[in-house]
Design a protein around this nucleic acid. Sequence first.
DNA 1: GTCTATATTCCGATAGAC
DNA 2: GTCTATCGGAATATAGAC
Lengths: 190, 190
Amino acid sequence: MVEKSIDTKTAILTIAKDLMRQLGYNAFSYADIAQQLNIKNAAIHYHYPAKEDLLLGVIDTYIEEYQHLGKQLIAAPISSLQKLSLFIEKYSVLIDQKSICIIGSVASDYNTLPKSVREKVLKLIDLVIDMVAQTLAEGRAKGELTFSEEPKTKSLLIMTNLAAGVQLARITGKKDFNEIVKALLDQIKK
Amino acid sequence: MVEKSIDTKTAILTIAKDLMRQLGYNAFSYADIAQQLNIKNAAIHYHYPAKEDLLLGVIDTYIEEYQHLGKQLIAAPISSLQKLSLFIEKYSVLIDQKSICIIGSVASDYNTLPKSVREKVLKLIDLVIDMVAQTLAEGRAKGELTFSEEPKTKSLLIMTNLAAGVQLARITGKKDFNEIVKALLDQIKK
DNA sequence: GTCTATATTCCGATAGAC
DNA sequence: GTCTATCGGAATATAGAC
């Protein structure tokens, strides 16, 4: 039964993605996943022999997701500000799920991650930073956005505002995150 | 022997602070601390019965540390920009220790923290945000700093730049963090 | 090929030695 | 008062059943 296997494997990955952002790499266990799927936790080892393999799978899906989003944004017939807003909205949604972004999650646990994962994480982060930088550069070239920094630097500033913003929102509430978003949008619009 | 006890307790706390920022709450164990002190891991339970108590102690020292820094900054005969630079320098040092800031650490692990700790964490974060906001407000009033946002909002922007900046620097290197710092200082100086 | 029973290691915590 | 020997449980992972 190939289909069942694929479904189980996909289901494991989906749950692992959520747990990574809600609890972090060291705080969730195979048992957490098995419980949700009504299987034994050892069954997960068939699909992902070690926890390292599971995390590699999680990072891979995020790399694919952001590669896809990057291509979508380039082709989309919308303003650069709208493109950025779409990106920011992805962060805003996390807060209601009591989650942080995958980048902040792996960054916080970085010292405990296997080497193979660290390399993939670097690829993911470069991808996202470049995507935002490209959108910023495009927006400024079209006269839609204003900022004095290099696009890469401004991307770093915005990315860190968002990544730590959702972390802070967990503790102080969503209001602070909304203030951050409003302020950074005001900065590049003015 | 009261002195030995105090020393051991202080030593435990110091190591726990480092481990919290290097590995996070769920990734370090009593064994990690015991090993460094050449005692049995169960000995730590005498000073801190549960891991929750140890974390409460860690957060308490940070609250005291930042209360102290806050008072120092108010009285210090230096410019507001220099005060901010002192604060930023504390973050810069973390990178060489492969550490993130305590706020980012507890924020990432927030969903796994005991309730008693969460309340203390909120107190710590409010303290730090207010301290930065006050320095910003003072600097603008004196004509030393420029920014258009509310001091509290600007504080949130800078704090998130720094907190996620050190997290990112773990992966992409210190150069990115230095770029972030340079950019945010340029913003408030101009 | 897919999953379960089981092993092994390590965790935080208790009870008791000195 | 301070620390150690030890427990109970949970973690990841293997070997083997279906």
